[in-house]
Write a protein that binds this DNA or RNA. Structure first.
Length: 893
RNA sequence: GGGCGGUUAGCUCAGUUGGUUAGAGCGUUGCGUUGACAUCGCAAAGGUCGUAGGUUCGAGUCCUAUACCGCCCACCA
C-alpha cells in the first residue's frame, strides 16, 4: 500500500492554530466585494473586555461562525464584525479590586483621571485575552474591522446619539425614584435589578393618630423606611378607617406629623388594609405620593446608612437601624406583631447586594416614542424573530416599557456630554466640548460627572461599528446587517435597544432577523457561575477534545432558543466524529493514491454507487431546507448520520471491494469516494472548520498529484473556507431506484449478520447461503461479491436463485419476500427455528390484520390517495412475506 | 398574578407543514484487532412519548385541562 502521510488519529493540536493563522493571513475573513450579490453581515455581540471565555461565548461563536461560513461558501460578500465592550461596572470593579490588592489604593484616593488611565492600561493589557480565545474557537470574523465600544469612533457615535436624542427631547434629566446600588454607589436600570424570593419578616405596628387614642395598624417589611413616611393611606370606602381620613398621624419615634389620605390603590383585603407611604423609598408609594402631592423624605446616604432625616438613627446601617427602631417602638408600645414573610427582594444583577429604591437626579431616555416603531417592524414582519415565540416576550416588554435611567455614577465609560453652568444653572449639551454656557455665555461650566450605561453604546453597535455617524463605504455597503444572533437572555438589554436606536438613527431596523440561541447550563441545568463552582471551561474542553468537537456538540445538541445542559461525554463523542472524518479521509486518499491512469472508458456505476449518490443528493437537499429554516442542529445531525452511517459504514466498506475490481473500476470508485467526501467536507465545514479544511487540502493535493483529475467538476477552489456550497440536485432515476434495491440488500446482510451473531459463528468463517430472491434474483446476483463480503459468505457456496427447494438442515430467514437458508451444519435447532418462524408469522399476521382493518375503515375513503396506496402496498408486501415465512416453516418440518 | 419552555430508552437529547411498528449518542450485554479508524467494527437488549379528556380516518406532533421541573415579566404593604 502506498504510504500516505496522515497520522492514524486526527491531531487537532497540530492543525487548529496553523489553519486559523493561514485563513486570516490569506484575508478570507474579509468580505469579497461583489456589487451584484447581497452581502451577509453579522455584528458580533461584543464580549466584555475583562471577560474570560465561557461556554456562552463558545455558543455564539459556533452559531455565528456557522452562519458566516455558510454564507461565504454560498458566495455572498460576508462580513462578521468583531469587537469588545468596555463593560462599565464590571471593568471598573475589576480594576478597583486589582488596585486595592496590589497597591492598597482606592479609586477615590487615586482620583478620576488617574483611575481612568489605569483602566485603559488594564484594557490594553488584558483586553486581548478574550479576543484570542474567540480566535481559538475558529471565528472567521474580520479582525481588521475590530472595534471597542470606547474607541474614538464609537465614542463619537455615542455622543452624536446622545445629542440627537437630547435635542429631540427624548433624553431628559430629572429627579425620580430609581434603583440605587449602595455598594457600587450608582444608579442602575430596572433591567439590572433581579428579584429573589427570600424569607423576611412582616412587621405590624400602630400608627398613632394625633390628639386621639386611636391608631391605624400598618404593616411593613422594612421598618427603617418608617422614618421616611409622609402619609398613611387607606381605602376611601373602608368603614374601619373612613372616619380617620384627614386626621394627622405621628411618625413613630420622630413624632413627625403626616396626613391620613385615601387612595383606591390600597387593597382592603390585604394585611391591615392600611398602608404607610414612603415616596422616597418605594416605587408604589412614590406614585401615590405624586398623586397626592406628598413630600419626599430620603432617609438614606448613598452607602445605605441612615442620613440626618433618620433623627436618632442617623449614621446607622439600614439593617442595624431596622433592629433598633423596632426595639424602640416595642418599648413605646407601638408594635403589634412580627411574622415570617416571604418577599421579593431586589438585588443588583452585578454585585448581588440589595438594591434600594431612592429618589435621585439622573438622566433618562423617554422610551415610548422609541418603542412604537420597534414594535411595528416586528409586527409587520420587516424584522423577524427566531424562534417566533420570543416575539411575544418582546411585545410584552416594549408595550409596557418605562423610561430608561442611563446615567451611572461611575468613572469608566462614556462621559455624559452635558455641562452645568454655575451662573445660570442651565445645561449645555454639545457634540464638541464647549468652553462656555450656551445659555448665558459664562465660562464657569463643568461637565456632568456621570457616565452612560454600557448598554447605551451597545445599542448603537450594528451601525457604530460600520462608521456611523459618518457616511462611510462600510455603512453604505453592509448596513443594515443581516442577522443578529445572540442569547435570549439579552433580548431586552441589547436586542430591543439596538432595534429602537437603529430605527431612530438610521431609519431602518439594524438587521432583518434576530436569531436567539439558548443558554448553556451545567449538567444539572443550573446557570454556570464561579460562586457555584459548576463552571465548565470551554478551553479545557477544547484542549481535551478539540475545537471542532466542542462546536459540533454545541450546534447539534439543542434546538433554537432552548437551553443546553453541557455534557462532556457528548463532546467526546463528537471528538470521535472528527476522527471518523479524518480516517474516512485517509482511506479515500489511499484509494486516490493507488488509482492509476484515467481509464479510456468509465464502467457503469454500481448499485452502491447509485445509492450513495442518491443519499448524498437527498442530504444536500435536506440540509438546504433545514438551513433555510434555521434548523442548524438538525442539519448537523443529518450530515453526521449520513457520513458515519451511510458513507463510512456502508459505502466505504463496499468501495474497498470495488477498488480491487480492475483499474477502471478502481478509478471510478476512487472518483466517487472523492466526490462524496468532498461534498461532505463542504457541508461539514461551517460546523467543524478545522478538520474539514485540513483534510480537504490534503484531498485536493492528492487528487491533483501527477496531473490527474479527480474531484469536483468545476475544479478545486483554493481553500475549503472559500469553496462553493453544494447545490441541491435531483438524483437520476437509476440512482433513486438504487436506494430501494440497495435497501433490500442491506436488510438481507443485516439479517445474516444477526444470525451469525446469535449463533456465535466465528467472524472469520465464510458460510454458504441459499437465497431465494424471486424477481429480485438478477439484482442480488449482480451484488453477489458485495453481499458475500459484507455478510461473510462463502462466494462459492452462495446460491442466488429465483426459486429453490429449501435445503434440509438450514436456518431459514425471511426478509420481506426474500428467503435465505443458511446451512450451518450442527448449529440448527429445528424446534427453536420453528418457534422463531411461528412467532414471526404471528407478528406479520397481526400486522396484516391491523392493515386490513385499517383499509376497510373510513381511512380508505378519508385519507389521501397516496397514503392509502402506501398502506395497500405495505399490506401486499406483508402478505407476500407471510407466504415466504410459511414456506420456510413448511420446509423445516 | 401573567407569560414561556421542558416532561420521549438507565442517562443526555433529537423527532417543524398530523400519515399509522418512535430515533441518536453515551451507558449496558455478547462477539471481534495484520491492511481508514479500538477516538473502531458487528450484533443485541431497552420506551403504553408526564396525566386526563378532545379534534381527526389517523396524534409524540393539533386543542383543552392538569401535575411536576425550570425560566421570564409584574408596585401588593
Amino acid at each position: 500500500m502506498t504510504e500516505f502521510a496522515l497520522p492514524k488519529t486526527y491531531d487537532f493540536r497540530s492543525v487548529e492554530q496553523r489553519l486559523y493563522a493561514w485563513w486570516e493571513s490569506q484575508g478570507y475573513f474579509r468580505p469579497r466585494p461583489d456589487p451584484a450579490a447581497q452581502p451577509f453581515v453579522i455584528s458580533m455581540p461584543p464580549p466584555n473586555v475583562t471577560g474570560e471565555l465561557h461556554l456562552g461565548h463558545a455558543m455564539f461563536v459556533a452559531v455565528e461562525d456557522l452562519m458566516t461560513r455558510h454564507a461565504r461558501m454560498r458566495g455572498a460578500p460576508t462580513l462578521w464584525v468583531p469587537g469588545s465592550d468596555h463593560a462599565g461596572i464590571a471593568t471598573q470593579l475589576q480594576v478597583e479590586k486589582e488596585l486595592l490588592r496590589t497597591e492598597e489604593v482606592t479609586r477615590e484616593e487615586l482620583g478620576r483621571e488617574a483611575f481612568v488611565e489605569r483602566t485603559w492600561a488594564w484594557k490594553h493589557k488584558y483586553g486581548g485575552i478574550i479576543t484570542q480565545q474567540i480566535r481559538r474557537l475558529g471565528a472567521s470574523c474580520d479582525w481588521s474591522r475590530e472595534r471597542f465600544t470606547l474607541d474614538e469612533g464609537l465614542s463619537k457615535a455615542v455622543r452624536e446619539a446622545f445629542v440627537r436624542l437630547y435635542e429631540k427631547g427624548l433624553i431628559y434629566r430629572g429627579t425620580y425614584l430609581i434603583n440605587w446600588s449602595p455598594g457600587l454607589r450608582t444608579a442602575v436600570s430596572d433591567l439590572e435589578v433581579e428579584y429573589a424570593e427570600e424569607q423576611g419578616t412582616l412587621y405590624t405596628f400602630k400608627y398613632p393618630i394625633a390628639g386621639k387614642e386611636e391608631f391605624i395598624p400598618v404593616a411593613t417589611t422594612r421598618p427603617e423606611t418608617i422614618l421616611g413616611d409622609t402619609a398613611v393611606a387607606v381605602h376611601p370606602d373602608d368603614p374601619r378607617y373612613r372616619h380617620l381620613i384627614g386626621e394627622t398621624c405621628l411618625v413613630p419615634i420622630l413624632k413627625r406629623p403626616i396626613p391620613v389620605i385615601h387612595d383606591t390603590y390600597v387593597d382592603r383585603e390585604f394585611g391591615t388594609g392600611a398602608l404607610k407611604i414612603t415616596p422616597g423609598h418605594d416605587p408604589a408609594d412614590y406614585e401615590i405620593g405624586q398623586r397626592h402631592g406628598l413630600p419626599i423624605v430620603n432617609v438614606l446616604h448613598p452607602d445605605a446608612t441612615m442620613n440626618e432625616n433618620a433623627g436618632p438613627y442617623a449614621g446607622l446601617d439600614r439593617y442595624e437601624c431596622r433592629k433598633r427602631i423596632w426595639a424602640d417602638m416595642e418599648k413605646a408600645g407601638l408594635t403589634i406583631k412580627t411574622e415570617p414573610y416571604t418577599m421579593q427582594v431586589p438585588r443588583s444583577q452585578r454585585g448581588g447586594e440589595v438594591v434600594e429604591p431612592l429618589v435621585s437626579t439622573q438622566w433618562f431616555v423617554r422610551m415610548k416614542p422609541l418603542a412604537e416603531p420597534a414594535l411595528e417592524v416586528v409586527r409587520n414582519g420587516s424584522l423577524r424573530i427566531v424562534p417566533e415565540r420570543f416575539a411575544k416576550v418582546y411585545y410584552n416588554w416594549l408595550e409596557n416599557i418605562r423610561d430608561w435611567c442611563i446615567s451611572r455614577q461611575l468613572w469608566w465609560g462614556h462621559r455624559i456630554p452635558a455641562w452645568h453652568c454655575a451662573e445660570c444653572g442651565q445645561i449645555t449639551v454639545a457634540r464638541i466640548d464647549p468652553d462656555r454656557c450656551a445659555h448665558c455665555g459664562s465660562t464657569r461650566i463643568e461637565q456632568d460627572p456621570d457616565v452612560l450605561d454600557t448598554w447605551f453604546s451597545s445599542g448603537l453597535w450594528p451601525f457604530s461599528t460600520l462608521g456611523w455617524p459618518e457616511d462611510t463605504p462600510d455603512l453604505r455597503t453592509y448596513y443594515p446587517t443581516t442577522i443578529m444572533e445572540t442569547g435570549y437572555d439579552i433580548l431586552f438589554f441589547w436586542v430591543a435597544r439596538m432595534i429602537m436606536m437603529g430605527l431612530e438613527f438610521t431609519g431602518q431596523p439594524p438587521f432583518s432577523t434576530v436569531y436567539l440561541h439558548g443558554l448553556v447550563r451545567d449538567d444539572r441545568g443550573r446557570k454556570m457561575s464561579k460562586t457555584l463552582g459548576n463552571f465548565i471551561d470551554p478551553l479545557v474542553l477544547m484542549d481535551e477534545y478539540g475545537t471542532d468537537a466542542l462546536r459540533f456538540y454545541l450546534l447539534t445538541s439543542s434546538t433554537p432558543g432552548n437551553d443546553i445542559n453541557v455534557s462532556a461525554d457528548r463532546v467526546e463523542g463528537n471528538r470521535n466524529f472528527a476522527n471518523k472524518i479524518w480516517n474516512a479521509g485517509r482511506l479515500v486518499l489511499s484509494a486516490v493514491a493507488r488509482a492509476g491512469d484515467r481509464p479510456a472508458s468509465m464502467p457503469p456505476p454500481t448499485l452502491a454507487d447509485g445509492w450513495i449518490r442518491a443519499r448524498k443528493a437527498q442530504l444536500v437537499r435536506d440540509v438546504a431546507r433545514l438551513f433555510e429554516a434555521y434548523q442548524y442542529g438538525e442539519a448537523g445531525r443529518q450530515i453526521y448520520e449520513f457520513f458515519w452511517g451511510d458513507f463510512a459504514d456502508w459505502y466505504l466498506e463496499i468501495a474497498k471491494l470495488q477498488l480491487d475490481e480492475g483499474a477502471a473500476r478502481a478509478w471510478s470508485t476512487a472518483a466517487l469516494m472523492v466526490e462524496v467526501l468532498d461534498d461532505s467536507l463542504r457541508l461539514l465545514h461551517p460546523f467543524t472548520p478545522f478538520v474539514t479544511e485540513e483534510l480537504w487540502g490534503r484531498l485536493k493535493a492528492a487528487c491533483q498529484a501527477g496531473g490527474r483529475s479527480f474531484g469536483p467538476e468545476a475544479g478545486w477552489e483554493e481553500a475549503l473556507i472559500v469553496a462553493r456550497w453544494p447545490e441541491p440536485t435531483r438524483p437520476r432515476p437509476e440512482e433513486a431506484e438504487a436506494v430501494g434495491s440497495f435497501g433490500k440488500v442491506m436488510e438481507v446482510i443485516r439479517a445474516i449478520r444477526n444470525v451469525r451473531s446469535e449463533k456465535a459463528v466465528e467472524p472469520q468463517r465464510r458460510i454458504p447461503a441459499f437465497i431465494r430472491a424471486g424477481v429480485e434474483a438478477p439484482m442480488f446476483e449482480s451484488q453477489r461479491a458485495m453481499l458475500a463480503h459484507l455478510a461473510r459468505l462463502d462466494p462459492a457456496g452462495l446460491n442466488i436463485t429465483e426459486d429453490l427447494t429449501p435445503p434440509a438442515g438450514a436456518i431459514p430467514l425471511v426478509v420481506g419476500t426474500i428467503e435465505i437458508y443458511l446451512p450451518l451444519a450442527g448449529m440448527v435447532d429445528s424446534a427453536a427455528e420453528r418457534t422463531r418462524l411461528s412467532r414471526e408469522i404471528e407478528a406479520v399476521e397481526a400486522q396484516v390484520e391491523r392493515l386490513e382493518k385499517l383499509l376497510s375503515s373510513a381511512f380508505a375513503q378519508r385519507a389521501p390517495a397516496d397514503v392509502v396506496r402506501k398502506e395497500r402496498d405495505k399490506l401486499a408486501e406483508l402478505k407476500a412475506s407471510r407466504e415466504s415465512l410459511v414456506a420456510s416453516l413448511d420446509a423445516l418440518q
